[in-house]
């Protein structure tokens, strides 16, 4: 038998750890780009690998080899740290989500709270990244990111708690376990919660219509304007991992998760459902124009938060489980 320590190490490094997650991140970036291109009547990535499958990876390698410029006026320490955080936080968060089987790599009672905390940290890091670059576009982008967080953070937290209340646990693995055990998905019980969650994830991922912090036509590249080379590569990879995180959270909280304790079946279900989630996010992204920051926040506070609270009330009244 292989010693347990080696298995644990392999799990963290290879599957379902770093290697698998990063490969998945590149794959979903490809899915996102290709599908968006198809929806917009373009071709999308075409040449690297079959149907451009390797294009995200090629872009990553290319960016790694590019010149890395740090602005003179920037806060160098924070400026260099931010990309690392932006990659490591979503990766860490993904370890809390079950991928193969019903149990995540790290799982403890209350890991849902920890995950929410990580989500907030990502938004704060984005703000710090923008602020520490000093450039005016970055500053405005960073401030917008922080503003946007005010809009989506609260409804997102509220609707993430929905499944937790219904399953009477604060552990993501156990929420998945509850859904598998009862053969019921929360999307059927909490459709409002699901819709709000997807909406907030669009904002978290800075996808259209909420790509306000990086609105190209207004503030160049927003908070990431000053980043280049390796740091930009890390930021982009971080964004991709965040997409995986978003898709797997949709899967775990609302679509029943891997749904099987058999690893092969579980991973199959997981891939299928997360791909569906990515397709959903991408399709939504192709449908809208960009909101303005004030419209976004007003909308969030006027409509989304009351709806999220309504969902909570419905759960309490017994409709959500």
């Amino acid at each position: 038998m292989v010693p347990e320590g080696v298995v644990a190490l392999l799990e963290i490094l290879l599957f379902p750890g770093f290697l698998f997650l990063i490969a998945l991140a590149f794959f979903y970036e490809w899915v996102d780009r290709k599908l968006l291109a198809k929806l917009q009547n373009r071709y999308g990535p075409l040449y690297t690998g079959p149907s451009g499958l390797l294009q995200p990876f090629a872009d990553f390698i290319k960016l790694l080899s590019k010149e890395d410029i740090t602005p003179k006026a920037a806060d160098k320490f924070m400026f260099s740290c931010a990309p690392l955080f932006l990659l490591s936080f979503p990766l860490l968060a993904l370890f809390l989500v079950p991928v193969a089987g019903l149990k995540a790599l790290i799982s403890f009672e209350g890991d849902l709270i920890f995950l929410m905390f990580l989500f907030t940290l990502i938004a704060v890091t984005v703000f710090i990244a923008g602020w520490s670059s000093v450039s005016r576009f970055s500053t405005v982008g960073g401030v917008r990111a922080a503003f946007q967080m005010l809009g989506y953070e609260i409804p997102m937290t509220l609707v993430m708690v929905g499944p937790a209340i219904a399953a009477r646990t604060l552990s993501i693995s156990q929420i998945v376990g509850w859904q598998t055990h009862n053969a019921a998905w929360f999307i059927w019980f909490q459709p409002i919660g699901f819709a709000i969650f997807v909406l907030c994830l669009l904002a978290e991922l800075e996808f259209i219509p909420f790509d306000i912090p990086e609105a190209a036509t207004e503030i160049v590249a927003g908070w990431s304007t000053e980043y280049s080379g390796r740091k930009l590569a890390l930021i982009r990879l971080g964004k991709d991992v965040e997409l995986v995180l978003a898709a797997s959270l949709i899967t775990s909280l609302f679509l029943g998760g891997p749904n099987s304790s058999l690893p092969i079946l579980a991973i199959g279900f997981f891939l299928l459902k997360t791909t569906l989630a990515v397709v959903l996010l991408t399709t939504l992204r192709a449908l809208f124009a960009r909101f303005r920051i004030d419209q976004m926040i007003a909308g969030a506070w006027k409509y989304v938060i009351p709806l999220a609270i309504l969902q909570m009330v419905l759960i309490q009244l017994g409709f959500g489980r």
Binding site: L39, Q40, R290
Partner: peptide, 16 residues
Amino acid sequence: AAHEIGFETLFMYTWR
């Protein structure tokens, strides 16, 4: 105009 308001899809369609 669609591009300026971040409506990429409309931009691609009209330019086609």
